[in-house]
Nucleic acid binder design. Structure first.
Lengths: 129, 129
DNA sequence: CTAAAGCTTCCAATGATTAGAAGGTCAAGG
DNA sequence: CCTTGACCTTCTAATCATTGGAAGCTTTAG
């Protein structure tokens, strides 16, 4: 399989596959005589794994670790669970931040007439009342 | 006021003040004879405005627009409100994404023993069951 | 007069991804 | 056989907001 087909099957773009290889997320692909990267089903499997982990919001650094745990058949599940729990915590912090922003903005927007006049509580709030 | 004191008063780092000037968020500061940037209270006021807008999650592009609306005494509040509402929508989308991630991860973590054994539903899920 | 703190500019890194340029390779059809 | 187009290669650079450092000038305090 060339990189194009591996991209199609895994859902990870060819550009990104090369990038993942460059930064060591995935091992270096073997090459054909002409220098093209060659992929087996198992390689595509890793790419799909990475894609799913990204979909759960893990950073590439974390994914690198997850992949190595995945490949290590004698891993302790506690290590994976700890990563998941730590990540959940980060997600919850981020969610709270965004919710606080949205809450403030909703409050300000509600009090803004939104007409042709210049008076605007939103700007007043940003100004520091 | 030099940039250092403006940074202290506004809470925006000197580095960032220069950067904001370079990308046109704030007007070019006037200079002393020796070339140092000089700031008045009104300039610091703008910096605080920018900082608050950032705190609400607006992008610098949006903030540039907000600042110009703020300075335009004949603006229509509808324009500001529209930006706020659009931003609220983006925030809500992001929150939903993060919540979906957290939900999935919580479910997976709950089913993971988290002990010394290798069996791990989290990795199994990433693998594609 | 000198040391330290503060200022200047420019260049580079972060994190994940995308985009482009310039060129080599492969398969199919005329 | 040769061309066309799709695919591959590498390297460079853009995005976004911010931070960091280097090298050098200015100001302030002792």
């Amino acid at each position: 399989m060339n990189i194009g087909e591996a991209a199609k099957v895994s859902g990870v773009s060819a550009k990104l596959i090369r990038h993942y290889e460059a930064i060591g997320i995935i091992p270096k692909a073997s090459r054909s005589t002409s220098g093209y990267r060659t992929y087996a089903d198992s390689d595509v499997h890793v790419l799909s794994f990475v894609k799913r982990a990204r979909g759960l919001g893990f950073s590439m650094k974390e994914i690198k670790k997850l992949v190595s745990l995945w490949r290590n058949k004698s891993r302790a599940s506690s290590e994976v669970k700890a990563m998941a729990l730590a990540h959940i915590e980060q997600l919850e912090i981020k969610i709270k931040e965004l919710e606080a922003m949205a809450k403030t903005l909703r409050h300000l927007a509600k009090n803004c007439h939104g007409d042709g006049r210049p008076h605007c509580p939103i700007l007043e709030n940003l100004e520091g009342h």
